[in-house]
């Protein structure tokens, strides 16, 4: 009986810990603000919208990611050898912490698995023009 109670507390604690981690938040922001175009699994849309999954662009331009998310992208870019010409709208409504969680989610799912702090992301965002 006592062991059972302990187990319940342990499970509750785990649930709390998981919900505090940045995972769900970054993923939620991705599904809300990015997935319509880049796909639920980061697969992109044929040759119309570039993928994040397996993208050489994501790995090469990692430091630009915060600015691209905030300001959007209006250039023709080359991803995995394909030219993409569409415009990506910016996401001015996202806060620094939301962008931080989003960047970490994207890098964990499809990038180099790196982690950046809110301060590091803020430094990048200050450099956006």
């Amino acid at each position: 009986m006592k062991a059972g109670e302990h187990l319940i507390y342990l499970v509750l604690l785990m649930v709390f810990l998981v919900s505090c981690a940045d995972g769900p938040t970054g993923e939620k922001t991705y599904q809300k603000s990015c997935a319509n175009c880049h796909g639920k699994e980061g697969e992109g849309l044929k040759k119309l919208i570039p993928p994040l999954a397996g993208s050489d662009f994501l790995k090469d331009k990692k430091s630009e990611l915060p600015c691209i998310i905030r300001k959007g992208m209006y250039d023709t870019i080359l991803v995995n050898g394909h030219k993409y010409i569409g415009n990506m709208p910016g996401n001015n409504e996202l806060s620094v912490i939301e962008i931080t969680n989003l960047v970490n989610y994207i890098n964990r799912e499809w990038g180099d698995h790196s982690y950046q702090s809110e301060q590091e992301i803020q430094v990048e965002l200050d450099k956006c023009d």
């Binding site: 997935a35 319509n36 175009c37 796909g39 849309l45 044929k46 119309l48 919208i49 569409g86 415009n87 990506m88 709208p89």
Partner: peptide
């Protein structure tokens, strides 16, 4: 074609 919101997901589903 320049729709930034629901069109890509609509097209993806239509595909």
């Amino acid at each position: 074609t320049t729709c930034p919101t629901i069109c890509p997901v609509m097209k993806s589903n239509l595909l």
